[in-house]
Design a protein around this nucleic acid. Structure first.
Lengths: 332, 332
DNA sequence: GGGCGTTTTGCAACGCGTTGCAAATTTTAT
DNA sequence: ATAAAATTTGCAACGCGTTGCAAAACGCCC
């Protein structure tokens, strides 16, 4: 069927090894055989079979890319950057959709069946044990958007969620909001928990601040809307939402109730996805440096591949406020 | 390193073939050897190596999924549904990002190196020759969101773009708009061309209608905004935009200029992505049945895999208007 | 031209499973 | 119990490349 090594070898009048070596970086072939082989390969349209070669080399250049939030606009950028970044380094992303399930058994099986070189868990909602299960199967893994740790047992790169929580509360305080609230994403997510922790701590440290908290059960417009509707009977002055889309849903509920943002209720999002800056949305939000998170994640993967015994590291990037129109201006 | 067939065979005290057959659908193994083998496999944690087996079976269950519009929110649904649909059928998507390039040589090489069983070109902007190049490499392919044809040389599933163009013009006419316009997506895309064709035809057939046309150079908010800004010196009464995000960008430009939608200018989108229905956007748009397009695409792929000589088919789904708030109500 | 050190080359085995075939075993029929 | 049919099993070759090793070819020096 397809053209193989052997075909090229015969046509070029050399051994199969010679052909193999011409296609192997840094192998020993004389200029003249290389020439012959390349000519033959060219004329036959030969493409080395990456999977066959992986059998002996043990490298497939396949990277499992596991994600959960397929419907969240943030992931447009995430997929775009991961695929491009991996492609640039000669790796191929094998995409695994875990939005329906959180049990690691199946995906781990799959990663092994396809002998991926490594896996990236790109999710802020999968529990830490998910990535751990992959590591336990001896597959190098980094958990992007995961929970930072001082003593990580798996590589993690993400943001400083606690810091974001603090920043949110401080931002509210600086703008004169006193009765503030945390409207997180799914409660079980570590990112939500950590942000709440930071938020709560900052409130405790700042005189005059009081808080309540609640959660949206999904990173969606309708979940945000639902959650805010439930709060409107006795609303806080400002809400720190777990995500931009949740914020937008919340805003919709607020406006439907005849209230205004930011006059009646302030809203602070998180992520800074592209649409947050669109002027009919114009959401004040905490920017997450996705580009850096992803390029660092890929760097870690490549690093671990070169040094399989590298100790796991945890890296969290700081975030910053993007001032737009859903929060009162700074009070002076 | 990893557990192999041989290990299991030794532990179970049977031949390698026996083990292989236990894991092969419909192979002949007695109940008692199967039991022994399964016990051994279980205790060793054996996972058959899909890539090694692909060598002899010729099937990898890998499907190349090629996309271009990684930043368009429509693709959230596209990726979600494709990955889930393929997973359900035991296939694995190998994701290829072609947003930076349109030359098929590299991706075709890649598809061959990884011996994908088939490829899906999920793009309305890649030219038809792209999918054709894959077919020429003897890789089964379907072009989702591609250009329909009476005599397709590649499987295509998409929407009736010409019909959408007509529908847009007729919708405008029915609402009393006379001076209407087409604000397409990228001009080179066949989808844009076909819609323009249908739009133009319907204008010609309908007395009292006049039209102009122009293009946004990308499926983005800023491209839509830019394009509309250029038109505002002498605007039409209503615009049929090539995409919802373009519409949203256009709306932003209109409102910035102090005009109102739909009072001053009507806007009709296309795609009906989730955010179009959010009430702070509330875009009247033409709904594209993505779910059906994708499930039909996957069905075609599976069909071609079962019958490699299946003649290419072209299937286009009808679209329908989703009435919201960017167009005047029906005049009676 | 002979001797010595390098490079290049091919052989053959290997990686992990699959499969045609013939031998061995089990089942069924008599 | 025996013969015939049906099933199950193992052997060995194969799929496509890679790689350690020894042999061959090359280059260099005297």
């Amino acid at each position: 069927m397809a053209i193989t090594l052997k075909d090229v070898a015969e046509m070029a009048g050399v051994s199969r090894s010679a052909v193999s070596r011409t296609f192997t970086e840094g192998a020993s072939v004389s200029a003249k055989t290389r020439k012959k082989v390349e000519a033959a390969a060219q004329s036959l349209g030969y493409q080395p079979n990456a999977l066959a070669s992986s059998l002996t080399t043990g490298r497939t250049k396949l990277i499992g890319l596991i994600a959960t939030n397929f419907r969240n606009p943030l992931f447009l950028e995430v997929f775009d950057r991961f695929t491009l970044g991996l492609q640039d380094r000669g790796m191929r992303p094998l995409l695994i959709n875990m939005s329906k399930e959180t049990d690691p058994t199946e995906p781990v099986k799959l990663l092994r069946q396809y002998s991926v070189d490594a896996a990236i868990v790109a999710s802020s909602t999968l529990p830490p044990q998910f990535a751990r299960a992959i590591r336990d199967a001896k597959i190098p893994v980094v958990n992007s958007f995961g929970r930072a740790s001082d003593a990580p047992d798996v590589d993690v790169v993400g943001i400083d969620n606690e810091g974001c929580g603090r920043m949110a509360a401080q931002t509210f305080a600086a703008r004169g909001y006193a009765k503030i609230a945390f409207l997180g994403g799914p409660e079980f997510a570590t990112s939500t928990q950590d942000r709440l922790k930071g938020f709560t701590a900052a409130v405790a440290e700042t005189p005059g601040l009081s808080m309540t908290h609640s959660f949206a059960d999904d990173y969606t417009f309708s979940a945000g809307r639902r959650a805010m509707n439930a709060l409107l009977s006795n609303p806080a002055e400002a809400y720190f939402c777990g995500d931009d889309v949740i914020s937008i849903g919340a805003k919709s509920a607020i406006e439907d109730a005849g209230l205004e943002v930011p006059e009646d209720i302030g809203l602070l999002g998180l992520n800074d996805m592209e649409m947050a800056s669109w002027d009919n949305i114009s959401l004040t939000t905490i920017h997450q440096p996705i580009e850096r998170i992803i390029s660092h994640s890929i760097d870690r993967i490549m690093h671990i591949l070169n040094d399989p015994n590298a100790a796991p590291e945890s890296h969290s990037f700081a975030c910053e406020i993007r001032e737009r129109k859903t929060l009162r201006p700074l009070s002076d």
